[in-house]
Computed example of a mutant assay.
Amino acid sequence: MSPRATATLFGHAEAEASLARAFHSGRLAHAWLFCGPPGIGKATLAWRFARWVLAGGPHAKPPLHVPPEDVVFRRVAAGAHADVLELAPQAEPGKRRIIKVEEVRAARHFLALTAAEGGWRVVLVDGAEAMEAASANTILKTLEEPPPRTVLILVTDAPGRLLPTIRSRCRRLDLFPLEEGDMAACLASLLPETSEADRAALMELAEGAPGRALELAEGQGVELAKLARAVLESLPDAAGAHALADRIAGRDAALAFPAFFALLVRQLTQSVREAARGGAMPGWLATRPLAAWAEAASALTRQAQEAERLSLDRRQAVLVAMETLRGR
Rank of each mutant, 00 (worst) to 15 (best):
F73A: 14
V272Y: 07
L290P: 13
A158C: 03
E69R: 11
V151I: 14
A115F: 06
R277T: 06
A17W: 01
H59P: 08
Q303L: 15
R108A: 15
P192F: 02
L235F: 02
A82S: 14
E132C: 09
I166P: 05
D174K: 06
A239H: 08
T194S: 11
L124G: 04
A50S: 12
E145P: 06
C170G: 01
E215C: 09
L28S: 11
Q270M: 12
L191F: 01
V53T: 13
G221H: 01
M1H: 12
S234Q: 14
E69M: 06
P159S: 07
L45Q: 01
H81E: 10
E92F: 11
P93T: 10
Q303P: 03
P164E: 11
L87E: 03
L227S: 07
L143A: 11
R314T: 01
V320H: 03
A254S: 15
D126Q: 06
A239T: 13
Q303D: 13
I139W: 15
D313L: 01
L45E: 00
V72C: 14
V76L: 09
A254T: 15
E69N: 07
R309I: 12
L227Y: 05
F49R: 05
A225Y: 01
V155N: 02
T194K: 09
E180V: 13
Q267I: 01
L28T: 09
F10Y: 15
P258R: 10
L163R: 12
A115W: 05
Q270W: 13
S234V: 00
L85G: 03
L152A: 12
A13M: 06
F23M: 10
D313Y: 00
P236V: 00
F49K: 06
L19R: 09
C35V: 11
A217P: 02
A55S: 14
A158I: 01
L143F: 11
K141V: 04
P159F: 04
A253M: 08
G283D: 10
S311I: 11
F176N: 02
S168C: 12
E223G: 08
P63V: 05
L54N: 07
A13Q: 13
L325K: 13
P164Y: 12
V272H: 06
A115H: 04
T138V: 09
V72R: 02
E215I: 07
F257E: 09
E14W: 04
A294I: 07
A249H: 05
T269I: 02
P159I: 04
